[in-house]
Design a binder for these strands. Structure first.
Length: 183
DNA sequence: CCCTGATTCGC
DNA sequence: GCGAATCAGG
């Protein structure tokens, strides 16, 4: 159905009157989804009515940067960083799945030689890509010098940040398996 | 789960 | 331009 003057008028009226997109869609008749309403409203430049998402986004913003001491930080994530989303580069479809690494049994580290980068060794300079899995005896981190501005070294940045494949030929997320645990 | 509006992007 | 699919917070 086309967007006639009349239908657009109703849309505007309802939108400005505080009706939800769903209500407006029902008002306009069958075959009109709330998506159609929202899409049209935006194209008309009507936008910006309280949106749960937008409202929350503005909430957590004011951060003038108190400039915290770059020094030591005892705090540490219970688990390794799940991989921050890239901004400029497009975020990878999946966060780094702790790369599987068949590791030989940890060798007895005699003396004080440290060969692994552990949780306590993490800082802004070293690659935080997990090697193995948390809980495993020799779980550790890559530890190589990071790519400036990233939490990982160049090699692991390549794995963590990948370009999005066009929706069209992107594999379907996979339908829920019968009997699979609900959520 | 439901709801909401916002956004993306193939058409 | 359209709107389904998707996202993300409530």
């Amino acid at each position: 159905m086309a967007w006639t003057e009349e239908r657009i008028a109703k849309l505007k009226q309802g939108w400005e009157g505080g009706m939800t997109a769903t209500q407006i869609a029902e008002m306009l008749g069958e075959g009109v989804t709330r998506n159609a309403v929202i899409g049209k409203a935006h194209r008309l430049g009507l936008e910006s009515r309280p949106s749960p998402v937008k409202a929350a986004a503005e909430e957590a913003a004011p951060r003038p940067a108190p400039a915290p001491p770059p020094a030591p930080k005892a705090a540490e994530p219970s688990a390794p960083p799940p991989a921050p989303r890239a901004e400029a580069p497009i975020p990878a479809p999946q966060p780094p799945p702790a790369p599987v690494v068949a590791k030989a049994p940890a060798k007895p580290v005699k003396g004080g030689k440290q060969t692994r980068t552990t949780l306590l060794d993490l800082n802004d300079k070293v690659c935080k890509w997990p090697i193995g899995h948390p809980g495993e005896p020799d779980f550790h981190f890559c530890g190589k010098p990071v790519q400036p501005g990233f939490p990982y070294c160049g090699e692991h940045c390549l794995v963590a940040y990948q370009a999005q494949m066009p929706r069209k030929d992107r594999p379907r997320p996979l339908p829920p398996l019968p009997g699979a645990p609900r959520r």
